[in-house]
């Protein structure tokens, strides 16, 4: 893990090389470093972290979607980067508005993001622009709504039995 000063060094390097306002915040919690990035600068930042020889975060471990319900930019997408040589992990985080959550895809940098970004789209409705195959992955393709959002109710999903079949949505016919 980069320690807290190491994280600031990375943040400063990004401010110098990418854009002065690319970094919104840095946080260091429980030995985990996290960079919060402006959504427009996500792909340049990831590209810098991947290709720069000083950084070498060449492996994308995971992409998570998060819904911070009461907070203002509601949705978040986390990219867990890993430097396999130094065994350091760095989280790059963006926050997106619920109205039109759109961000550039990073599949061209990390092909592994293909399924994982689709999963984030499936559950949170974050659209990744330029993704080769932006469809639902785990939910049915005709499903409406984004079930992992915090305001999506748990339960209440109609279960079809023979007796209530006529009241169903009809897609099964």
């Amino acid at each position: 893990m980069p320690d807290a000063p190491g994280l600031e060094l990375i943040a400063n390097a990004i401010r110098e090389k990418i854009a002065p306002d690319a970094i919104l915040a840095t946080s260091y919690f429980r030995e985990q470093a996290c960079l919060e990035v402006v959504p427009e600068q996500l792909v340049p930042v990831l590209e810098y972290l991947k290709t720069d020889p000083d950084q070498g975060y060449t492996f994308l471990a995971s992409v998570h979607g998060v819904d911070y319900l009461p907070e203002a930019p509601r949705l978040g997408v986390h990219y867990e980067l890993l430097n396999m040589k130094r065994v350091e992990r760095l989280r790059v985080k963006i926050r997106l508005d619920i109205e039109s959550p759109t961000v550039q895809t990073s599949v061209h940098l990390f092909p592994t993001a293909n399924f994982q970004e689709r999963e984030v789209y499936d559950f949170f409705g974050v659209v990744f622009e330029g993704h080769p195959d932006m469809r639902r992955i785990l939910m049915p393709e005709d499903y409406e709504g984004f079930p992992q959002r915090r305001d999506f109710p748990l339960g209440g999903e109609p279960v079809m039995f023979t007796h209530n079949e006529p009241e169903g949505p009809g897609w099964y016919e």
Binding site: A61, S62, H64, G65, V66, D67, Y68, E80, P111, T112, N114, F115, Q116, E119, Q148, R150
Partner: peptide, 15 residues
């Protein structure tokens, strides 16, 4: 928990 997400190796490896 407000969010639990598993990075499942099978899910990623299947690609």
């Amino acid at each position: 928990p407000a969010r639990v997400h598993m990075r499942e190796p099978s899910f990623v490896n299947l690609q």
